[in-house]
């Protein structure tokens, strides 16, 4: 697949503040890349540079082979955008709004199809001002899809949506991937990124601190599985292929990169000693575990 979004050593400064500091990644056709990071990590600034709203201080960005700041109408015709903060005129109805935006494109999605895509058929004649925050977010997504874009920038597209609407939006985004659309998505919902993204980039304090598939994010020791149980015995644990992590109360958490051997050693020891490992559980670290590890420790500048 051809890369259609390319970011190389992107730097964006506001005066003495560095919002984005040497970030590089790419997104291919038909690929969904999730961008994670705490508030102030530089995600929105990166997306706004890619949308051509802000000029980079350094580095290079290309969208469909064009500099976004100079791509002009030709590039905008092929790019759909859901901005984190942008307005829609409240005085227009939902259908009028979609028709207005769809009218900017030569090959546009029919209004009825765009409404159906985001489950807003029943709101077609309602003024935007009368919609809930979640419904407005869905109108925003419908506007981004009106263009039948080749590249889609989604900056927190499901913020404010109820769980059903969020899942419906996920289906829409997954469908776009099938159509070859490249999607760059930011979100605070890790489940959303885990579910949708082929790859994840994690930003922290303006830097890219990890990149990879959601289930293998981080690499190295971060891949360790967790064994947890409650300690109801006084015996010391034997040495084994694990590292004991800090945990509250009687809970014991062991990190291991060899789960089979560790479980075998632990349960054999418990059977030999006749102790019960209450609530014994083996689980792979979740995306949330890895995300918190990346953004809360060891990567501060």
């Amino acid at each position: 697949m051809r890369d259609v979004i390319e970011v190389h050593e992107l730097v964006k400064r506001y005066g003495s503040m560095t919002a984005v500091d040497g970030v590089s990644f790419s997104v291919a056709e038909g690929e969904v890349v999730g961008m994670l990071g705490p508030n102030g990590a530089g995600k929105t600034t990166t997306i706004e540079v890619l949308e051509g709203i802000r000029a980079p201080t350094g580095g290079q960005v290309r969208v469909l082979g064009h500099d976004p700041a100079r791509g002009g109408r030709h590039l905008k015709t092929q790019v759909g955008v859901v901005l984190q903060s942008a307005g829609i005129d409240g005085a227009l109805t939902v259908a009028e709004t979609i028709a207005l935006y769809a009218g900017f494109y030569r090959h546009r999605r029919p209004v009825a199809e765009a409404l159906a895509e985001v489950d807003l058929e029943e709101c077609a004649g309602r003024r935007v001002a009368a919609l809930s925050g979640g419904q407005r977010r869905r109108v925003d997504l419908a506007l981004a899809l009106a263009a039948r874009p080749r590249v889609l920038f989604l900056d927190e597209p499901t913020t404010g949506l109820d769980p059903a609407a969020r899942r419906r939006t996920w289906d829409v985004i997954a469908g776009l991937r099938g159509q070859g659309v490249a999607v760059l998505l930011t979100s605070h919902y890790l489940e959303e990124v885990q579910r949708l993204a082929d790859r994840v980039v994690v930003m922290h304090l303006g830097r890219l601190v990890a990149e990879g598939p959601p289930d293998r994010l981080g690499g190295g020791s971060e891949l360790a599985s967790r064994i947890t149980f409650r300690r109801t015995f006084t015996d010391e644990l034997p040495p084994g292929p694990w590292e004991r992590l800090a945990a509250a109360g009687t809970t014991v958490v062991l990190a291991t990169e060899d789960a089979t051997e560790a479980m075998h050693a632990l349960t054999s020891w418990a059977v030999d000693r006749g102790v019960e490992l209450e609530g014994l559980e083996l689980r792979r670290p979740s995306l949330e575990d890895r995300y918190l590890e990346l953004t809360e420790g060891g990567h501060d500048r």
């Binding site: 790019v79 955008v81 901005l83 942008a86 829609i88 005129d89 900017f104 925003d140 506007l143």
Partner: peptide
């Protein structure tokens, strides 16, 4: 009002000159 509410910002992301 259109600028302050982000309506112009949204329109600027489209091919509208």
């Amino acid at each position: 009002v259109a600028r302050d509410q982000g309506v112009l910002r949204r329109l600027h992301a489209t091919p509208l000159p």
